[in-house]
Amino acid sequence: MDLQITLLLGQDGITNGAIYALLSLALVLVFTVTRVIFIPQGEFVAYGALTLASFQAGKTPGTLWLLAGAGILVALIDLKIALAAGARQRIARILLWNLGYPAAITVLIFLGKPEGWPLAAQVLLSLALVVPLGPMVYRLAFQPAAEASVLVLLIISVAVHLALVGLGLLFFGAEGSRTPSFSDAALQLGSITVSGQTLWVLGSSLLLIAALYQFFGRTIYGKALRATAINRTGARLMGISTVMAGKLSFLLAAAIGAFSGILIAPITTIYYDTGFLIGLKGFVAAIIGGLASYPVAAAGALLVGLLEAYSSFWASAFKEVIVFTLIIPVLLWRSLTTHHVEEEE
């Protein structure tokens, strides 16, 4: 392995690491706020990338039907609850978001012919389609069991993952897709060329991380999410509803997931089930951060990315084995630094 290859692999590792970092931040966010270990995060990565690819190929993405179907279900459930509680003022809102919004997106897709749109508009449309699925998934799968143990929530999470992967196959088929690069520009750094897409990935990841930092540190909604993570009862006593916090954190996680998918689709071919492994690598990073620390998770993500890149050179067949075996020393380290058995509530 000469310097050239070392640098190239390092570039790959850092690019992937940036994506894992984004995902691990979303996972830590969702876990601290809702106690859900968000296994389906990877499906949002795949949905984001493949929805964009569908638009570019002039096809209607199946995720549209999922949005419509989930919207109808949420609307039915919430309407029933609102009517039973006599809260008529909620009806308009429920109809607008769960039926009106998907209808508007449908009209936009069928009349707007997005295959001819500029890339940025296609990206926005893909996000507008995939991101609302986050809160809807929370509403349908997790909200009814919000008080259950972490373990039950984890099993639900795995079940949701399974259903979404199955749907992914149904929507997008077994073939993978790759989307065109955001930019053809390239940067010459000494002897290696850094592609435009790599710069896009790194730049957007850093921007997103900075934006999240601002969100949590400066806005009242960001602080409300942190408050829920620190003390759920305390937050509820301030009128910060657990449901609202849950939906908001799922919204952010879905947005981060879908956008990550869109960012890497020009670099790797994305299949309907690719997201799972990508998401799990985010998990290894999140576990390095103890599912609690954002900065340690982000640093862990870079480590995972680099380890993956170098092991794909040395032992490509065992790449996944090596990355997931990393969890063993990590758990050992965590277990040695945790001094007592944690008491579960």
């Binding site: 408050a227 305390g234 937050a235 006593l237």
Partner: peptide
């Protein structure tokens, strides 16, 4: 509003942020 026996403060946040979140419902 309930001031609970265990206080239920947001321990890792500043006093000012704790107070700010008290106004969350009205802010919303």
């Amino acid at each position: 509003n309930l001031v609970p026996e265990k206080r239920e403060l947001f321990g890792e946040m500043s006093v000012e942020d704790n107070l700010l979140l008290g106004a969350f419902v009205n802010y919303r």
